[in-house]
Amino acid sequence: MLTGKNIVVTGCLQGIGKATLKTFAENGANVFACAYAANDEFENFCKDLADKNAVKITPIYFDMSDNAAVVAAAKKIQSAKEEIHGLVNIAGINNDALFPMVTYKDLFDTFQVNFFAQIIFSQYIVRLMQRKKTVGSIVFTSSISALDGNRGQTAYGASKAALIGAMKTMALELGEFNIRVNAIAPGVIKSPMTDKLPENILASKIKTMDIPRLGEVAEVAKLYLFLMSDLSSHFTGQVIRIDGGMG
């Protein structure tokens, strides 16, 4: 579904990002696989994935809490001189605290990684798309916390809601350049982030779902696949929930 496309994915080290990297490679995409830091396991994972699927996987390492590093990463991608067809922003952090205990630092740190860095990074990638007049697709990873609220997630939910606001405007401005911009809102997905949650909390979440189980990272990856593919060529400005029918 993605043969010949070059796609940038952030947050590839684990969880949803890693599953998305794998899904994209299996569907023929060359991927700039962005991750927080290098390690042998990830390097080998990328190499095996590239060999197995006859695609190019280029690891790019940077810390999204450092804007200079974010810009440097974008310039590194530009220096590859490839046409960029897609960007999937997955990297994110979570600083849970009940509302009265949320500090300014919690808010700032969360917004830095979950919002500011993603917007700055996207600005550069959009310019690469515009420069080559590429038909492009950008996806942000919001959350049901942004739409419904979630106890302890003032900072996280607000940062993910901010992405929706930016996404809507980006979709408006970039549509005429044939760049689509969407967001997905995952519910409770089995990942290193949810592995930290107590069993009783997970059980209470599952009770609210029409499909009473945690989502799998591979299921989220398939939604990104759809949004990166030409199957979604008339989708833009949308927030798509993938939450097993929570409510």
């Binding site: 810009v71 974008a74 310039k75 530009q78 700055i120 600005q123 310019r127 515009q130 420069r131």
Partner: peptide, 18 residues
Amino acid sequence: HMSLMANIEDSFDIMMEV
């Protein structure tokens, strides 16, 4: 302006800061 910036970036193989 954005078209001009794209032309300049392409011509000199640079990526300009916002």
